[in-house]
């Protein structure tokens, strides 16, 4: 990170502004979709998909993940991704897989 040239950085800045416009547009799209009052499952899938794309853009370009040297970041990110999946998914699977006759009392 020493003496960078001006032109490449100005190009980067143009890129950032474009990505910014993209992320904001996706947010507004998601809000618009909300007003369509879709059935819940469809709404969940669509909205999460949009959020995922936004996160990919923000992480990839704003946090310049896509231009870093790969190895170390892959380790950290892959591990986190797997674990977040484990934390998100396994407890809910467990919730649905019970011994017949079990009643979960958070549901009255």
């Amino acid at each position: 990170m020493t003496t960078d040239n001006i032109e490449p950085i100005k190009k980067e800045i143009r890129g950032y502004v474009i990505i910014f416009i993209g992320i904001v547009s996706l947010s507004l799209t998601a809000v618009f979709i909300n007003y369509l009052h879709l059935p819940l499952v469809a709404a969940i899938i669509l909205t999460i998909l949009i959020a995922a794309v936004q996160v990919f853009l923000a992480a990839g370009y704003f946090m310049h993940l896509l231009s870093e040297k790969k190895l170390v970041l892959y380790i950290v990110l892959t591990l986190t991704a797997i674990l977040v999946l484990a934390v998100l998914i396994l407890p809910s699977i467990e919730h649905h897989n019970t011994i017949p006759g079990t009643v979960y009392t958070n549901v009255s």
Partner: peptide, 18 residues
């Protein structure tokens, strides 16, 4: 070690798959 934790919870009424 991240995917074994529920062996502390075998007696919570979990089904056979989990």
């Amino acid at each position: 070690s991240f995917i074994v934790w529920a062996h502390h919870m075998f007696l919570t009424g979990m089904g056979t798959a989990i």
